[in-house]
Design a protein around this nucleic acid. Structure first.
Lengths: 128, 128, 128, 128
DNA sequence: GTGGTCTAGACCACC
DNA sequence: GTGGTCTAGACCACA
């Protein structure tokens, strides 16, 4: 995992984002035991409390559960994970579309931009 | 103009965003005179200092210029406005694509989501 | 407000409980500004962080909202408050009924206990 | 017996609760021999130490007694069992009433809620 | 050793 | 002065 931080968002929120990503992409498999708070904190280079806060947030979202003294585990409920993933994607998509619409782009304009970007990318790919 | 504020961004930043939007969408036409800081602040229901900061930001971006005593005006340089608009759009697009890619969506997946969304929208439109 | 704490529940949770109670009972009126985190913390005799955690919880529940630098306010949405109140009552009721049922009491048994308690109470009242 | 655990109470306390319930409801008859700690622990899926602690608690409460090598037995003193049962019920009742009173419900309000709940239940029963 | 809680104290952007 | 974030370090019950 890369534990680099931007400065446009609180660290704990970025930790949440990062861990969520790890779960929905399968990097952290359902049922897997997470390292202890202290270990994760050390790995990420943050205070244990900060990491704790992030994990508490994940617990609230149902992506992780804590067991008294055994540690924390990724939920086995793959439905929850899948729902979380699509929710994240839809949210991104919705935000993107409304922002673009506010800027005066309609669906065709957006589609044009996308294909344009795509071609750029392909040229860059072949060029590398 | 709607002057409602979210809680995830400083107010002055939201003011900048809102005014920028007004300019690039033509709601505020090139060369138009802006209301005074006091008036704008009153309209938006914010502290004049906060509005002031937003306008200063817009000046730095070259979208607005001040004339000693006459007030502030939207730039007449339509090229600057157009550039600002495409810059905003590209930035949105880039952020969106990288976020989706992190979530495991490739170009085809994104395209699928977009068309899906489009159909939803159309059904909603016809249904209303 | 009485800020006494039991030791069967984390302090922050008791703070949440106490403040929630204040809101649903109208002790804290809709739209009212709460004292600052620091003031509340001093009044309750806890660390500001602990009070902050409680208030964050209330915010998540929609009973309180924060405004950038102006302070925190009780929600004006009385529907949310009413819903919260009935939710609390129903939850208490449900817990009570299931617990009694597990103990082997049916509805009639519970009703009997209630009227018995009521009479006790009345005798105590007249006796005072 | 169902040995599922919540997360809001230490496991040993939940074990005590569960076993107490078994005794006061007669599921575990007076004088009956309990399985060994090891067996109980295995059945409940907990550490033997944890189950041991729960049983010790029950002994202190006088609901269970140990005989050197023969094992543990449910008390034959039905008076103790009955007293334990009413104590549990009264405690539940008292807690419930004070909580509801704090929420602003008087006896009539509580009675109303109860009958309301009762009707709901009956409709659900007949409806199934 | 694990998660959970709490304190103390600091820094920050914002208004 | 306000809310928000973060660190450091401590203590606790639990298993």
């Amino acid at each position: 995992m890369d534990w680099s931080f931007r400065n446009d968002l609180p660290i704990y929120a970025q930790l949440v984002e990062r861990l969520k990503l790890g779960i929905v992409t399968g990097e952290l498999t359902p049922g897997a035991r997470l390292p202890s708070v202290r270990e994760l904190a050390a790995e990420a280079g943050v205070n244990p409390n900060t990491m704790q806060r992030a994990l508490t947030e994940l617990e609230r979202a149902g992506l992780v559960y804590a067991q008294r003294t055994a540690g924390r585990f990724v939920t086995e409920d793959t439905a929850v994970i899948a729902a979380s993933k699509t929710a994240m994607a839809e949210s991104r998509l919705r935000d993107f579309l409304t922002a673009m619409k506010k800027l005066g782009y309609d669906r065709d304009g957006i589609a044009a931009l996308l294909t344009e970007k795509k071609e750029e990318q392909e040229h860059a790919d072949t060029g590398m």
